[in-house]
Design a protein around this nucleic acid. Structure first.
Length: 255
DNA sequence: ATGGTAGAGGATCTA
């Protein structure tokens, strides 16, 4: 079983790359973030032609999430329950006994900004909901763009980024709260290359210089973590023409 | 040099 997540930064622009990636990697589930599409414009048929079902929730211009899978998703949820939010950042679906949650955590813009306050309000709401999900679904995977680099080794220049958005202590604490609720960062179950990142700014030749952050994560419930045999970032995708600024992350479960 | 790029939409906003 291959589980993957990719912030595509416009599914309209990236659709050919997504279809090619589905065909070559054959993931069982692919979570997408920043589709930036209204639901009526979602490329359902093109994706179906590749052999994948889609569940999605989007909006014009910003945000938007989807789960592509070879199976049809059930028990679909498209928002955090009991949390007022206009932005489309969450979709969850059940595939047999596997519960998949796709998340696009707010970016936060800058420490102290209104968007940062929204991020710090959004994250505990996510954690509270996922604690309930975990009670219902022992086999739970939560993957997506968390917009949080959990540790200094996930940052190309920790001094420069110290206390900045994506790295600030309140954000890292919120991520820690999520982990301590019963999740494991699948990437850190394994030995990984030094300076492994999942996002590189489009500006300043950041990718060529490997000035990146690891902010896209696949979190597994304990039951799933026990069967995880690999996790890697597909950095080659970021080298393509007209790439997303994020690379896909993929975890492999046995059986 | 307080910069730079990409996407959406059609002037800025978001990342």
């Amino acid at each position: 079983m291959k589980l993957a997540t990719w912030n595509v930064n416009s599914l309209k622009v990236r659709l050919p790359q997504v279809i090619e990636w589905l065909q070559t990697q054959q993931p069982d589930m692919l979570c997408l973030q920043e589709t930036k599409l209204s639901d009526e414009n979602f490329p359902l048929d093109e994706i179906a032609d590749t052999g994948y079902q889609s569940v999605f929730i989007g909006q014009k211009t910003y945000n938007g999430v989807a789960i592509l899978s070879k199976l049809q998703g059930q028990e679909i949820i498209t928002a955090i329950p009991n949390f007022e939010d206009d932005q489309k950042r969450i979709i969850a679906a059940t595939y047999e006994d596997l519960r998949v949650v796709c998340v696009y955590v707010p970016n936060g813009e800058m420490v102290g900004s209104e968007k940062y306050a929204y991020k710090l309000k959004w994250l505990p709401a996510l954690v509270a909901w996922l604690r309930e999900e975990l009670k219902k679904y022992p086999k739970l995977v939560v993957m997506g763009d968390y917009n949080i680099a959990p540790d200094d080794r996930d940052v190309y220049d920790p001094q420069l980024w110290n206390g900045k958005v994506l790295c600030s202590q309140p954000e890292r604490d919120a991520f820690g709260e999520l982990l301590s609720s019963g999740f494991v960062d699948s990437f850190r179950l394994f030995e990984q290359p030094e300076k492994s990142y999942s996002w590189w700014d489009y500006r300043m030749l950041a990718f060529r210089r490997n000035r990146g952050l690891r902010i896209d994560h696949i979190l597994l419930s304990k039951v799933l973590a026990d069967s995880c045999i690999a996790c890697q970032i597909d950095k080659a995708v970021r080298k393509q023409d007209r790439p997303s600024d994020h690379a896909p992350v993929m975890a492999v479960l046995s059986a």
